[in-house]
Design a protein around this nucleic acid. Structure first.
Lengths: 129, 129
DNA sequence: TCAAAGGTAGGAATATTTTCGTACGAAACA
DNA sequence: TGTTTCGTACGAAAATATTCCTACCTTTGA
């Protein structure tokens, strides 16, 4: 593995992201636990989830504890680091890297509630201190 | 086409998004113009871009003016509407719909410059008025 | 003890996305 | 006019991502 490959942040696919979200929410889990969560959102076969998680372990997106028969999977990179990277990519590609443009859109967005807006203001206020 | 299909917002794929970005930036364009822009970022064959744009026209992501030999493609839905939809999806999937969590991450992010930060504050200040 | 339930592994089938070869028509121009 | 350049259309190949079948092992419990 050369340096480029090492440093390249693997982009999770859509399905992989769904699995990451479960693990972020629930912490280290077995395939069964993850699959049960996914079943709440969509129809998915157990072995499909198993396979995906195996692939993710191969790619080092997940770590796997094989000491028990029921393997325990956990995320390899901390949640914030991964999310931060994905957010960066999003801002870069959608707003040419301008975070303020994104915030502007967010604020103009009907779906962003007044409560959210209030919270955003609070955050900024705190940063001033 | 039933109502569900009609209303379903077609998610552009990664490559389709690249093309949308060019069209957002440059306005209605021929395949040649779009391809020339893409070539600045990556290696891509003319017919590949043509094919993608044809597919996008089929999906009604793009409109096509065929009155000239060099067809002119333009985005079918306004830029802000599309971006807003994609941003919503992103916030939903990554931050469980919490816009303030996203902003928090943005502010904690090294890549968000002081200048950006300043601009974000300006926006909020203006909203108060 | 043996059948049922639940686990992993791996390959193959599908579905989706991306790329490009080829054919063929129109325009440009020597 | 002929040939080169530039355009579209279309199908198929290639690359990726997703799904699931099958085999086989371990645990559970009647």
């Amino acid at each position: 593995m050369n340096e480029t490959e090492q440093n390249k942040q693997l982009e999770p696919t859509k399905s992989e992201l769904e699995i990451l979200q479960v693990l972020w929410e629930k912490g280290p889990s077995t395939v069964r636990m993850v699959n049960d969560e996914l079943l709440k959102q969509k129809d998915v076969n157990y072995t499909t989830t198993l396979k995906l998680m195996q692939i993710m372990a191969d790619k080092n997106i997940l770590n796997r504890d094989e000491s028990q028969m029921k393997h325990i999977y956990s995320v390899a990179e901390e949640e914030q680091r991964t999310k931060s990277h994905l957010l960066d990519k999003f801002v870069d590609s959608m707003y040419k890297g301008s975070a303020s443009k994104l915030v502007m859109q967010l604020l103009g967005n009907k779906k962003t509630s007044d409560k959210e807006l209030q919270e955003i203001k609070e955050i900024l206020k705190k940063m001033e201190e």
